[in-house]
Design a protein around this nucleic acid. Sequence first.
DNA 1: ATGGCCTCCTGGACGC
DNA 2: TGCGTCCAGGAGGCCA
Length: 270
Amino acid sequence: MPELPEVETTRRGIAPHCEGQVISAVTVRNPSLRWPVPSDLAERVSGKRIQSADRRAKYLLIHLEDGTLIIHLGMSGSLRVITDNAPPMTHDHIDLTLESGTVLRFNDPRRFGCWLWTDSVDRHPLIESLGPEPLSEAFNGELLFQRSRSKKTPIKNFIMDNHVVVGVGNIYANEALFKAGIHPRRQAGRISLDRYRRLAEAIRETLSAAILMGGTTLRDFVNSDGKPGYFAQVLLVYGKTGSPCTQCNTLLKEIRMNNRSTVYCPRCQR
DNA sequence: ATGGCCTCCTGGACGC
DNA sequence: TGCGTCCAGGAGGCCA
């Protein structure tokens, strides 16, 4: 799935097409997503003007006059801008038709994504308890240090916890820990402030670089134009088990953590 | 409260 | 060519 860079890439792709537009129709072909698509979604949003296409964590927030569409792409979702009346394909579950004729089309083979509507997004249970954005001023080494005291969970699990910091998924957790030289299994509560400063910087750098390259496409991520992202070409550890470390030539090792593939350099990461 | 595990679902890769 | 198995970018919810 789309991790934060892929969601941000999607947001930037759809924003110019939908901001200021009025929604003229909603077509739900399959409401069976992670949570059922609200049966009154069409009447909630039809005729409403889109104020902005925003993002919080990996949620796309389509702000309307009187509420917000909360969209998550799950593991396999994509949102594309359709301008040529192309017919819907398999797994094209939802169309948002705009007054301009442009269609925002949601495709999600695994259906782990969601489409919800709320009139108070800041108090929505999926949104209100999220940690800071990794690219904001509020996110830094001090924050990670403070929140990690007495935590026994491994550092990789810790930085993937949305209550700590949002938007760090499996690929970028692996990459950031490698850049910061921290072993993914190290206990979060036993890492120094200094090392947390390096880690916060590594997370920030990794995510920013991925956004600049349009996200990571491993199998099937496409942006709003249906194009892949290019960050996969510069991954340092994820998907590179058995390859030599770019720093020391030691062969990269793979372990499972929470059933997610975890790749690291046994020499550089302590 | 904390941490770890399961689960939702489809499809692609791989081995036999 | 076909079939079974495993794996995948998330993250809420449940259980100990």
